[in-house]
């Protein structure tokens, strides 16, 4: 999956100027350092995890601004979500009326994107959004790398 296909899942039609360096996509201008095999160059956009793309924290904010469907959660729902839980109907304070099967971004009360998932039930149901990615992934990734 490339970056454009990934964005299309959120209903976003946009070209992203980024290049795959190792297992991550980066946006950068000066290509002269590429031959020295950098681990990080310019602005990180996303990471490849098997066949799946994981957005960077910065890119996730852009997705949060442009996505067709958004779900805003309360502080309790926010905390549960960044700990890796799904979104429950009782946590939702606002939404763009997504339907089952739609991909939605999850925003906190500051309109910051904290992750995304797929709608699996009506907005007033118990489990509403099945979590696919949340920003807590960053810490989980770091802890995993430390355990090796």
């Amino acid at each position: 999956m490339n970056l454009e296909e990934f964005l299309a899942l959120f209903g976003i039609q946009k070209k992203v100027a980024a290049e795959l360096v190792g297992r991550s996509y980066f946006s950068f201008k000066d290509k002269s350092l590429l031959s020295k095999r950098p681990l990080f160059i310019g602005e990180c956009i996303a990471h490849l995890r098997g066949p799946v793309l994981i957005p960077s924290i910065g890119f996730l904010q852009e997705i949060g601004r442009l996505a067709k469907h958004r779900v805003v959660v309360n502080p309790e729902g926010e905390w549960l979500f960044i700990c890796g839980r799904d979104v429950f109907g009782k946590s939702i304070v606002k939404h763009t009326d997504p339907k089952i099967g739609d991909r939605v971004v999850i925003l906190n009360r500051h309109s910051e994107c904290i992750g995304y998932g797929d709608v699996v039930g009506p907005m007033d149901g118990k489990v509403v959004v099945k979590r696919l990615f949340d920003i807590g992934d960053l810490l989980r990734r770091e802890r995993k790398s430390r355990s090796f």
Partner: peptide, 21 residues
């Protein structure tokens, strides 16, 4: 062993002008 935390902090803090070797 110190590189993963470096890369994650750069990503987390939205650094856009660093190249790491």
């Amino acid at each position: 062993h110190r590189i993963p935390s470096l890369l994650m902090n750069l990503e987390r803090c939205r650094v856009g002008n660093a190249t790491v070797f």
